[in-house]
Design a protein around this nucleic acid. Structure first.
Lengths: 342, 342
DNA sequence: TTGAAAGCGTTACCAA
DNA sequence: TTGGTAACGCTTTCAA
């Protein structure tokens, strides 16, 4: 009352327009031939009844949920949320919406969530992970044979027959080392993400490569990889810096695998009164907003978030719309952004 | 081949188990009477065929999408992402998943997204907004008559017949002013969010109330509300602090309506060499992770994110499961967390 | 305790 | 260019 229950269905529309429901369906989907006058009658009826096709009924026929998922290790990391915005943007253009799944850095969670997504027929997945394991890698590669999956990490770049959109971390990290070398730094340390098989492995490789290119020797003592995940990455960075300086007082630069780690490093260095960048320079990775908030502001390697998100989502949706679309790998270059910390 | 297409449906299961599909349905839904042996036959068949009920077909009958939405002004604000994690957590318990909608601070976006959500039969909505307008307020109140909506802002607390889960901002801000007063501060300024009808109005009211309680006079010159939304809240805070200090050099404390603003304030104060908290104290609102990253760390008013998210999602789901559940308002108290900035 | 059959609201094929 | 009708895969009466 006072508005009417708008549970009009396709039959109501057909009746009002004086046509069959097939015709209504054709109009809705802009499908097949339909006379201009007939079309008008139908659209009028649709407007009058305030009719909206039941997405449930459509889904059961089309086998599409018009939903994609974005699975991330930690939704509070602004790298993912910035990406999410772009993903949502593109998705909306195609009448898609996006389910966000926070895997809490847990392998079990990844599987559980993938299972749920599959059960509700999510049409596709943007898969971000932090800690790779044999099992999850295999699982998601397998999953990608059933529904479109885009692997959003450079660490997957060498796996055949999958789609991957990512920033290479090797060359850019190597370039960062070179950059520090040119600034006169000779004892360059590295702070990696916790865990042994994380997605930043290749950034670490870049670090080693960079040292080699500069003619510096690689010293395992100059690298920290904490085994356990502490409460936060910032904290991990803090502790890592502490460990490094305890081991070696000559350190004059620290490269971190992510901005959060680097922020923790900055924090420790300031805590112990070390001058940045005069005594120790710091470089991060990701170019989060955080970088301009810290003091000093943080030099970092930027990922082209906007482009990555846009391309990845387009690729995903194109695979959803046309299963014949071939797998593709889109690898971007990281870009060094110089700020006060170097 | 080598795995089989698992598109078994309820009829396949019924055949294999030697029963009718009605019986299978009963087993799936734990519904009605079914003999123990029959049940076993069915569950065996389900297991053998690796059968999963089609969520599409279920939805069309049950009229439930098993999806809720969380609409936020800016997904990159960690306040929302921390809340999201809790929401997702609870949702998963009930076999629900959550669609995140970033409204980009735009009223038009809010409407557009709500429309999309409605069309796809999202079962319920957690609605966060930053900038209220008559229209959007009315629209969402109206929407709440159609599907369960929880208003996640204290600014909605006085509207009848809606559900609301929020932190009161008035008393806690007033308490923060009192706290500063007790520290000897007498010229306390306020930095509000941009725009005139935002959700922090009541925090500002608390500021005025606090002054009154302390016997201090309210001076409009001591308040900044920037009309335009600049590129970031941190930046807005920075400019606001600048404006304040240009107007009045006596200022010895600044209360900000959000942590991001406060971070901007800190940044400006440090930039011009003012000592914090000796010369000027700073207080934020939200207790984001950010607060412990800045230097000095930021005193702020904490919102009980965990509890809010949990209660809100439970309330939403209970309304979804039982439309007779009454509207409820759950208002928490903010809690002052003292750090170095005061 | 079980099964038959009638929906749920679409899409898509085939005739007309 | 249109309409009839058979799916889609499930839930839910109603009888048995």
């Amino acid at each position: 009352m006072g508005g009417g229950c708008n549970i009009a269905n396709i039959i109501d529309v057909a009746k009002l327009a004086g046509v069959s429901k097939s015709t209504v369906s054709r109009v809705i989907n802009n499908n097949g031939y339909v006379d201009t006058e007939t079309r008008k009658a139908v659209t009028d009826a649709i407007a009058e009844l305030n009719y909206t096709p039941s997405s449930f009924a459509q889904s059961i026929r089309t086998r599409k949920s018009k939903t994609i998922a974005m699975m991330v290790p930690d939704a509070s990391n602004t790298f993912y949320t910035e990406l999410f915005k772009v993903v949502e943007d593109v998705a909306l253009e195609y009448d898609y919406m996006v389910i966000v799944c926070d895997t809490r850095l847990s392998y079990e969670y990844e599987l559980m969530l993938a299972d749920r997504l599959l059960k509700r027929h999510t049409d596709g997945l943007l898969y971000f992970t932090q800690q790779r394991t044999e099992e999850n890698q295999e699982f998601f590669i397998n999953l990608s044979k059933k529904i479109p999956v885009i692997f959003m990490d450079y660490a997957f770049a060498d796996i055949p027959d999958i789609s991957c959109v990512a920033v290479e971390g090797m060359q850019s990290t190597s370039a960062a080392v070179k950059f520090l070398f040119n600034k006169g730094k000779r004892n360059i340390a590295y702070v990696n993400l916790p865990g042994d098989k994380n997605v930043t492995m290749l950034r670490f490789e870049g670090y080693r490569q960079g040292l080699e290119l500069c003619g510096l020797e690689y010293d395992p003592e100059m690298v920290v990889v904490r085994a356990e995940l502490s409460d936060s990455l910032v904290n991990t960075g803090y502790c890592s810096a502490q460990a490094l300086l305890n081991r070696n007082e000559q350190i004059d630069a620290i490269v971190a695998a992510s901005d959060q780690l680097a922020v923790g490093v900055l924090k420790y260095l300031k805590h112990v009164g070390i001058k940045i960048p005069e005594q120790i320079s710091v470089v991060g990775f990701d170019n989060l907003d955080l970088c301009t908030i810290t003091e000093p502001t943080l030099t970092t390697i930027a990922q082209p978030i906007e482009e990555m998100g846009r391309e990845a989502t387009h690729l995903l949706l194109s695979k959803i719309y046309n299963s014949a679309v071939k797998n593709k790998k889109i690898i971007y270059n990281g870009m060094l952004i110089e700020r006060q910390s170097t």
